[in-house]
Design a binder for these strands. Structure first.
Lengths: 142, 142
DNA sequence: CTCATATGTAACTGCAACGGTTTCATATGA
DNA sequence: TCATATGAAACCGTTGCAGTTACATATGAG
């Protein structure tokens, strides 16, 4: 949802520099409730990715050029810190050496996978997404 | 949990060839209920990774040498087919071209990430895990 | 100043997923 | 024949998330 919203903002910034979108407009495209959108936008604001104006003619706009916002930034902004995969809630039996060894091994694997994923996400920017949107919509401007 | 159980079985097979473990024994190490373990073992059996004997002296054992069971096999065995990441349940607004473009772009990214993850999991076998367990427990046999 | 309009936030609801538990059926070796 | 193990269905409680309502706050236009 965060990427969706930011993609819309990137397009909007391209067509109408200085323009903003309301949470209702974004919610219509995402098919959800404006408040849900605002909750996500609040995270993005805390991360410094967007700027938000209140009141009439208010709304949200990108705080930086799309080329300087990576998908990894977005991930971090909405990340709650929970691991991507987790063992079962109870955790391994601390009195069973095998359980502890397995848990440690899988933890290392998981960390590696998360790192690899985040690294690949760092290579994709909102500018790439905006370009893909324009191409898909057939507005290539070329 | 599946990896945990199979790791225990790999160790058991090493120490007592032909030996089996009961779902209760595994459950104690995993800190869960035997029935929960059996649910997972049922998936592994359907995938042909383990063999299960009923009745007294019954239990479960690996169906193949640990070196021929990869973490990817295990993933596939317990996978429910749901994508690792998903957009919000409602899906994009089909009447909004931008929404459709974003959804398509993210879908392609997700598929790539899942493929990359599964590929890396294919390089790790239960033999690797068993070795790590032995090392961590200080029983290097060397 | 006043008001319409937009966001900020808390609180509650409803739904789905998951683990835990019970219960009973089934297989099987001693 | 019986003790012991798995197989499977059914149910419960918890958790997480989206959706929704309600109200507070900010702000530009008149």
């Amino acid at each position: 949802m965060a990427v969706h919203a930011l993609g819309m903002l990137a397009c909007e910034g391209e067509r109408h520099p200085g323009g903003v979108l309301s949470s209702s407009t974004i919610a219509r495209s995402v098919r959800t409730h404006p408040v849900v959108v605002r909750r996500v936008l609040a995270d993005l604001r805390r991360a410094g990715l967007v700027e938000i104006r209140r009141g009439p003619k208010g709304g949200v706009a990108l705080a930086r050029p799309p080329s300087r916002i990576t998908l990894r930034c977005i991930w971090e902004a909405v990340d709650d810190g929970e691991p991507l995969f987790a063992g079962h809630p109870a955790g391994p039996n601390p009195r069973c050496p095998t359980a502890l060894a397995v848990a440690g091994y899988l933890d290392a694997l998981r960390s590696g996978a998360e790192r690899q994923l985040k690294d690949s996400l760092r290579k994709v920017t909102l500018a790439d997404l905006r370009r893909a949107i324009s191409t898909t919509r057939g507005e290539t401007h070329a």
